[in-house]
């Protein structure tokens, strides 16, 4: 049965088919898949789709046991530029 397409990364509007095709065409690591499609790079910082992007590349990548495949970077919560720059809210 055909898999109907659906959104995976809601912030950047990246779909399932787009992710699967990109991954199989390029043999991506999780990081490369993220950079190519922008899945996980939107406003929420990948708080929902991060595990999904990792799941897609899991078999290809042989998930390294000792480091997190998709790097976490501050800020880990959405914050205003004012807060980030140390200025007034």
């Amino acid at each position: 049965m055909n898999q109907q397409d659906f959104l995976v990364c809601r912030c950047e509007e990246v779909t399932y088919n787009e992710l699967m095709e990109t991954a199989s065409r390029n043999g991506c690591t999780a990081r490369e898949l993220k950079l190519r499609t922008r899945a996980g790079m939107g406003y929420c910082g990948g708080r929902t789709c991060r595990p999904l992007v990792q799941q897609i590349t899991k078999k290809l990548e042989q998930a390294p046991h000792t480091r997190v495949t998709l790097k976490y970077q501050p800020p880990v919560r959405p914050i205003s530029f004012g807060v980030l720059g140390g200025g007034e809210e």
Partner: peptide, 22 residues
């Protein structure tokens, strides 16, 4: 799965343990 974002930002060494959720 364990919510480890701040430990990752701090630079903690990690290990993937399926039995613990990630």
């Amino acid at each position: 799965y364990p919510l480890t974002e701040l430990a990752a930002v701090a630079g903690c060494p990690f290990y993937l343990v399926e039995e613990l959720g990630g």
